Simulated assay, not measured.
Amino acid sequence: MNDIPRQDGRVAVITGGSSGLGFETARALADHGAAVVLAVRDIGKGEQAASRIAAHVPGANVTVQNLDLSSLASVRAAATDLRSAHPRIDLLINNAGVMYTPHQKTADGFDLQFGVNHLGHFALTGLLLDHLLPVPGSRVVTVSSYGHRIRADIYFDDLQWDRTYDRVAAYGQAKLANLMFTYELQRRLAERGSTVAVAAHPGNASTELTQNLPALARVASAAVKPLLAQSAADGALPTLRAATDASVLGGQYYGPDRMRETRGHPQLVTSSAASYDLATQRRLWSVSEELTGVTFPV
C-alpha cells in the first residue's frame, strides 16, 4: 500500500466497492487522494462502506452509485448517472463478481456468472469509455481469477448454460472472458495512445465469494484458509498495482508472486494459453456486442 503514488485529482469508479477486494481497493485509493465512486447493487451497504472509508480517511471523497450488473437497464442507468456526475474518469475498476452460483439467469436471460462477471462489465466499460479516452494515464482494470484456468473455455455453443450447467466451468468461462476482453480492448485502445486496459487477480483471498462453494469444498476451504488464504487487503494489491504503478503497460496481467500465485506481493504474471487466442477474443467481442447492444468508440 505504501508504494501507491498520490492519486489527487483522479476519479476512480469501482464496481463492487462495498466489500471484499473492492472495498479494500477503494479505501487504498481514497487514502491516497482519489475521488472514489462505489458502484454497488445494494445502496445501503455502499453507504456503510463509504462511511467506513471516511472514518479511516478523514476528508475522503467517496460517493455511492447504484449498479446492478445483472441488469443491462441498470448498467445503462448507472452509466448515464456517472457520465453526468464525472466528465472525466481516470480509473474504471471492474471488480464486482459472483462465483460458483447455482444455475440462475440475469434480468436479460444470461447465465448469472457470465452476465455479471463479463457482460455487465463489458457494457459498462463501453458506455463509459469516451469519458476515459481523453484523460492522460486513464486505465480500465478488470479483475479476473486463477479460476480462468480451471475447466475454462468460451462455450459459444451454449454460452448461457441452457443445456447443462457446471458451476465451476461457468465461472472459468466468465473469468477467461474477463482476460480476453482486456486483451482485445487493449489492442483497440493502442491506436489512441492514452487509455490502457490491464487485468489482475487476487490469488486466494478471503472474501465473500466463497459463500457459494459446495458444502464439502467449503469445509476444505475453511480448513486450509489459515495456511493458504490471504486477507482481502493483500488480495487487492494486484489490482492496485495495475491501477496505479507508472510502469504498467496495457495488456498486462498482475497477480501474487508466491505459492503458485495464491498469495504474496503483486507481480506481472502470465494467463493461460487459451486466453491469448486472437480469433476467440474477437469472436467473444462480437458476441458480447450483440448480446449487450453496446458498441465501443474504439
Rank of each mutant, 00 (worst) to 15 (best):
Y146E: 12
R149C: 08
I150Q: 13
I150R: 08
R151N: 14
R151T: 06
A152D: 03
A152G: 09
D153S: 15
D153M: 06
F156I: 11
F156L: 12
D162S: 15
R163N: 14
T164P: 03
T164V: 13
D166S: 10
R167D: 09
R167N: 14
R167H: 15
Y171R: 06
G172V: 02
Q173H: 03
A174E: 07
K175E: 08
K175C: 06
A177V: 07
N178P: 10
L179C: 03
T182V: 10
T182P: 01
Y183W: 14
Y183R: 01
Y183I: 00
Y183A: 01
E184R: 09
L185Y: 01
Q186Y: 00
R187V: 03
R188K: 15
G193P: 10
S194W: 05
S194A: 13
T195R: 03
A197E: 00
V198W: 00
H201W: 02
P202T: 05
N204V: 12
A205Q: 05
S206D: 15
T207M: 05
T207R: 02
E208F: 02
E208G: 12
E208R: 12
T210E: 12
V219F: 11
S221P: 00
A222Y: 04
A223E: 04
K225D: 14
P226N: 10
L227Y: 12
L228C: 07
L228F: 13
Q230C: 04
S231C: 12
S231L: 12
A232K: 12
A232V: 11
A233L: 10
A233W: 07
D234R: 11
L237K: 14
P238Q: 04
T239Q: 13
T239W: 03
R241M: 14
A243N: 07
A243D: 07
A246H: 13
A246V: 15
S247D: 14
S247V: 10
S247A: 15
L249H: 15
G251A: 06
Q252Y: 04
Y253A: 04
G255M: 07
P256H: 08
